[in-house]
C-alpha cells in the first residue's frame, strides 16, 4: 500500500506572534517553525498502516526552502521518501494554492491513500485535504478518528458534533483528513535520524499558483469592555437583565 502524507510547516507555539507592516501576514523573519500538529498524527497513522499492511509512506510538503526541516523530521520518524514543492510564493498561500502544489507532486504517484492533518495550526481552514481530493479526483472523508483497511477498501470513523461518531465505508484510493489525538505519536529515534540523511527528497516544480482568496487584514483579537445600564423600574430592569443574560450573554438558560 502506498500512502502519501501531506505535512505543513507552521510557526511554533513558542514564538511570539507579530503582525507585519502591511497587516496581512505575520512578521516571520525570525520565527521558529515546527510540524503542524494534526499532520504529525496523520504521519503516525500512515506509519502504523504501513506497519500493518506493508508498503511505502511518502511524505509531501509545499512551501519555501525552510520547509525541508519538517520533511526531514517526517523521514526521521519513518517515512520512506519525500516529495517537496519548493517555492517562495507558497509562503502564506491559501488552501487552493497549497492543494494545487501538493496535487502536482502527487498526481503521478498513484497512491492508495493520501492523509493530511485535519487542519493547520496557523490558518486553520481545514480545506487543503478536501481541495486536494477534488483536484486529484479522489473521494475523501474528514475528521477521521480511526482507519481500517480490508480487501482494498476503507472503513473510517468520523467525529461528528456532540460526541457522536460515524463509520463510513469508502473505496480506495481516497484522501482522509486526520483528527489530532487519533494515535500516540512515536518519537524520532537516533537510528531514524541517521537513516533520514540517506533518504530521497525529490523536488517538484510548483504549478501555476492561483490563489483564490486574499487576506485583507490580520489583527489580534481586540479586547472590548462595555458596561450597560438598564433603566426602568427595578422589576422590569431585573426581567430585562435575565433576558440579556439568557439570550445575549448566554450565561444562563
Amino acid at each position: 500500500m502506498k500512502i502519501a502524507v501531506c505535512v505543513k510547516q507552521v510557526v511554533s507555539r513558542e514564538w511570539q506572534l507579530r503582525v507585519d507592516e502591511s497587516n496581512t501576514w505575520i512578521r516571520d523573519q525570525d520565527a521558529s517553525y515546527e510540524l503542524n500538529e494534526p499532520d504529525a498524527y496523520a504521519l503516525e497513522e500512515a506509519l502504523r498502516l504501513k506497519e500493518r499492511h506493508g508498503g511505502e509512506v511518502v511524505v509531501c510538503s509545499a512551501g519555501p526552502a525552510r520547509v525541508s526541516q519538517v520533511v526531514r523530521e517526517a523521514l526521521a520518524r519513518g517515512a520512506d521518501r519525500a516529495l517537496l514543492v519548493e517555492d517562495d510564493r507558497l509562503v502564506g498561500a491559501d488552501a487552493f494554492a497549497t492543494a494545487s502544489a501538493l496535487a502536482a507532486a502527487l498526481k503521478d504517484e498513484r497512491c492508495d491513500l493520501v492523509l493530511t492533518g485535519l487542519q493547520s495550526d496557523d490558518s486553520g481552514f481545514a480545506q487543503t485535504g478536501v481541495v486536494l481530493a477534488e483536484t486529484l479526483g479522489l473521494p475523501h472523508a474528514t475528521i477521521i478518528m480511526e482507519v481500517q483497511v480490508a480487501d482494498g477498501a476503507l472503513r473510517v470513523k468520523r467525529e461528528l458534533e456532540g460526541g457522536w461518531f460515524q463509520w463510513i465505508a469508502m473505496p480506495m484510493p481516497a484522501v482522509l483528513t486526520i483528527q489530532s489525538g487519533i494515535n500516540q505519536l512515536r518519537y524520532a529515534t537516533l537510528k531514524g535520524i541517521m537513516a533520514a540523511k540517506k533518504k530521497d527528497v525529490k523536488k517538484v516544480a510548483a504549478p501555476d499558483l492561483a490563489p483564490q482568496h486574499e487576506i485583507v487584514r490580520l489583527y489580534f483579537p481586540e479586547k472590548a469592555k462595555a458596561t450597560r445600564l438598564i433603566d426602568g423600574a427595578p422589576a422590569d430592569a431585573a426581567k430585562e437583565l435575565v433576558r440579556l443574560l439568557r439570550d445575549e450573554a448566554r450565561v444562563i438558560s
Binding site: 500516540q184 512515536r186 518519537y187 529515534t189 537516533l190 537510528k191
Partner: peptide
C-alpha cells in the same frame, strides 16, 4: 535509538 522506549518516555 531503535524506538523501543516505553510509551510514557516517547
Amino acid at each position: 535509538s531503535n524506538g523501543e522506549a516505553p510509551d510514557y518516555l516517547g
